[in-house]
Nucleic acid binder design. Sequence first.
DNA 1: GTTAGCACTCAAGTAAATAGAGTGCTAACA
DNA 2: TGTTAGCACTCTATTTACTTGAGTGCTAAC
Lengths: 351, 351
Amino acid sequence: METDRLDSRKMAILNAIIRNYLETGEPVGSRTISKFTDLSLSSATIRNEMADLEELGYLVQPHTSAGRIPSDKGYRLYVDKMMEEKVEEVNNMKEVLDQKADRIENLLKKVAKLLAVNTNYASMITTPKYRSRKLKFIQLTNVDDEHLLAIIFLEGNIPKNKVIEADHRYEESVLLKLNIVLNSLLQDLDLEEINMNIIQKIKEQAGEDSALIGRVLDAIAEAIREEDNIEVYTSGATNILNYPELSGDDSARKLLYTLEDKQELAELVDDKLSSVDSEHKRTKGDIQVYIGNETPIDSMKNCSVVTATYEIEEGVYGKVGIIGPKRMDYDKVVGTLKTLMTQLDEIFRKK
Amino acid sequence: METDRLDSRKMAILNAIIRNYLETGEPVGSRTISKFTDLSLSSATIRNEMADLEELGYLVQPHTSAGRIPSDKGYRLYVDKMMEEKVEEVNNMKEVLDQKADRIENLLKKVAKLLAVNTNYASMITTPKYRSRKLKFIQLTNVDDEHLLAIIFLEGNIPKNKVIEADHRYEESVLLKLNIVLNSLLQDLDLEEINMNIIQKIKEQAGEDSALIGRVLDAIAEAIREEDNIEVYTSGATNILNYPELSGDDSARKLLYTLEDKQELAELVDDKLSSVDSEHKRTKGDIQVYIGNETPIDSMKNCSVVTATYEIEEGVYGKVGIIGPKRMDYDKVVGTLKTLMTQLDEIFRKK
DNA sequence: GTTAGCACTCAAGTAAATAGAGTGCTAACA
DNA sequence: TGTTAGCACTCTATTTACTTGAGTGCTAAC
């Protein structure tokens, strides 16, 4: 693969062609390059070089008498070797910083929107994923004669509420006892570690109130599962419609469809994006760029996807990505994501 | 307005035209009707009647030599007088019933999706709106040396958690005292009723811990405000792209845009849909039908919107709506919404 | 190795021709 | 007076042929 080394002139020409195409979206002709660059070569010479570049697979001709456009391989080379990252401001980032986003999901939604507005492409962001959730602390409280409230603290200081049906009102002293039993036996365990053995022990110690224990454990399981569920927020999906190369065929339609169904999208991103990552590490800094067919998600095969991984605390991370046409402004997108990453970092460290 | 009473034959013809147009989406010609109906009239006669109906404003001709299509006024008459509600099954409704939707927002999301899948149009549903939220019960608990947890129960048995920063660990006995003070003074008050007078009283009784009170009150305010915020969930927005009359011009694009920005959509639905309701009560049972320009939301002026109001408990209600092309299957949509309403009713009563 | 020049290709736009669905109107009929 | 047959007319949509222009590949000369 690496046999086809390009001499510096070919590189310069390819670079010029891609840059021009990214700007205009029109196939680029030899004359344009001849004038556009300071190589001072005639169009005929450029034509020869272009023919070579096409043979090498970096360029493609939509039809015989049109100019050239970059192939996926061409884009790849551009991203790997020619791109000049711009340092991009993320506009209005202060706003996000300012509003105290106590709920992380609100923060994530804001970030997605910001990215979409700044880039004019579509964006998505997942909730952070914990390796596994452990129970830190549980407390039962009376609500009324028929309901108890279980406050469940998971690793990462996430409090969850679960209302539990009760057949009668429990004495405060009984609840105190139950709370102690539950915490002493369950603390720092995750779902897999709570086995029948432990459950039996709890029931024994609970004595006559063991009927309640089943429901409490259900509540815990539910809380942990809920928090394990990755969610995805998207923004600017409709921006996709602005790019004729996508809205022409029904790529855009399929893409919108994928972006709309958050449930499915979450699975896709979790399964596919993560697994491909390790496989071919086409990485630029901490940023991954998937061009066209490199993307593991079918409905994005006519697009490019740029993703980054944010870390909210040691080992707890999520993905953020931008989806646009293959001729997206890679320089800008990568730059934007990079500054976003550092800014997010600041927010999370501060917390 | 009510001067132009239509004789029964005109009604029959108009009915036939609209039904045919709803099915095919193509302008309807006189010959079609002549054969399609059992009126046994020649096409020429139908033509005369059609000319009359056009003059009266019920039909419209896209261009001279095309058939007729219904005007908004025509649709209106159809919906008010001619529609035969079908009793529509809502497929897979059991699924929703089955899964215990402990969080209402999950239930609402499911419902939206169900509607979209069943009808092939776009759907939206708002979270229920309380007139005002009162505080039922608050409890402070220790988390660790630097944090307290405030569990805040609002009217409607909605528990909310707020983590509060603390400068030191509080004794259990102190917390107990604070809890009693807070509850005795704040119970059953809403935001407006918590005034400086009351706040002063609490601080007096809290004594040396009054510093904490400010933060607790902030937490309460936040919890109430959060719950007051109406949210909207949508589904099937991309279905809109299936209707050429919308995706032709950029109605669909604008509509998708509106449906994507939940924040803005929530405001629109809250402001506009509710206010128009009382104004011109174009109601069919409990269902409102907005045809074309009747819709108060700009980006939906080329569509029809059918909404219903669900009640989750006495005085607490939300809106659910379906957005489709003007030539939507009103019979089906209205039927679907009606059965949905009764089914939702069952769910909420049972709770 | 570079360049000028020329014949060739192909998409896109323009213009004219055709087909077909549907109308409005008139005149005749019951 | 209401209904119908018939015919000329209108307008869109589709097809076909023609033209334009950008861009190429190749050859021959520098």
